[in-house]
Simulated assay, not measured.
Amino acid sequence: MKPTLLIMAAGMASRYGSMKQIQQFGPSGETIMDYSIYDAIKAGFEKVVFIIREDFADDFKAIFEPKLKGRIQTEYVYQAMDAFTEGHVAPEGRTKPWGTSHAILCASPVVKENFCVINADDFYGEDAFKKAYDFLVDGCNDQTFALVGYQLENTLSENGSVSRGVCQVDENNNLVQINERLKVYQEGDQIVYEEEDGSKHPIGDESKASMNFWCFSPALFPFLQDEFRKFLRESGNELKTEFLIPYSADQYVKQGKGVIKVLPTAAQWFGVTYKEDAPVVKQKLDALVDGGKYPQSLW
């Protein structure tokens, strides 16, 4: 079976303040997701599964079904607070979803083949989808997963510091761990990260950043279910703690379940975290279209 593209679009966009997943950025009203799906189809993907909120399903489908019909198979799953909780009841006052690992777990009923998972509001670039597709077809198995690793300099912002997961790899390019650096920026001719005490440390030019572009086999799902049980026991009564895929991936490696390859890409990443990022995203997409990388209208 050909691999599937899984898109996480159930986030509440609390920092951004609106449903940024469906904001139009392209010259013909395209969302960032449209470009990801376009690149995925070009790479060989024939099925996309959207993880969304059920209360948003009708509006979401009305946007995507007409333009994707006949181009790629679509399916939808809902990230609900009671899904896969085995009876655990969320604490009163919790509105935040359980997190990205839980979102992926919610897709298990419809994903039976190797798959990659991405964020809805990040632009990943054509090369990333090619690398992911080739790995899912030829390299992925139940003990070998992967993460698309971006050149750190291709993920920085001109508007200030960013938080990045910096990948530490071994001699075989297997992921050892992801170090969360909360304040990363370009200073002169080097990239540095700053700690809370103000101390600065250089990050090597060859460092790869994780932008939540993962490649898995369905063997991930039972592992996530086990990990989710642990999460609910330890943190299930907290209002904001989340069950996140970088942590799950870290546990997968540390527990000796298998390896996670880091697939290097030279693609340029950009995304929307705050409203102020929107004009920059639009400008970058316009430049790609003007340069002939994408058609004026994707669909």
Rank of each mutant, 00 (worst) to 15 (best):
M1A: 11
K2S: 15
I7W: 03
A9M: 07
A9S: 14
S14D: 13
M19I: 15
Q21F: 12
G26I: 05
G29D: 01
M33S: 09
D34Y: 06
A43W: 04
I52F: 03
E54T: 06
D55I: 11
F56V: 13
F56H: 14
A57D: 15
K61W: 04
K61F: 08
F64E: 00
E65C: 12
K67T: 00
Y76L: 11
M81P: 03
F84Y: 12
H88M: 07
E92W: 00
K96H: 04
T100M: 01
C106E: 03
C106K: 01
N114E: 07
I118D: 01
F123W: 03
G125L: 07
F129Y: 08
K130E: 10
K131V: 11
Y133S: 00
F135H: 07
G139E: 09
C140A: 15
N141M: 02
T144Q: 15
F145M: 10
A146N: 05
V148H: 00
G149D: 06
Q151K: 13
L152C: 05
L156E: 05
N159A: 14
G160Q: 10
V162D: 07
V166S: 05
E171D: 15
N173M: 14
N174Y: 14
R181Y: 10
Q186S: 12
Q186W: 09
I191L: 11
Y193S: 10
E194Q: 15
G198Q: 05
G198H: 10
H201D: 12
M211F: 08
N212W: 08
F223V: 08
F223E: 06
Q225I: 13
Q225S: 12
Q225C: 10
Q225F: 11
F228N: 02
F231Y: 10
L232G: 08
G236V: 11
E242M: 12
L244I: 13
P246Q: 02
D250G: 00
Q251R: 14
Y252R: 06
L263Q: 03
F270R: 02
G271H: 03
T273M: 07
Q283L: 05
L285G: 05
L288Y: 05
V289N: 00
V289I: 02
D290Y: 04
K293Y: 03
K293C: 09
Q296D: 04
Q296E: 09
S297A: 12
L298Q: 05
W299I: 00
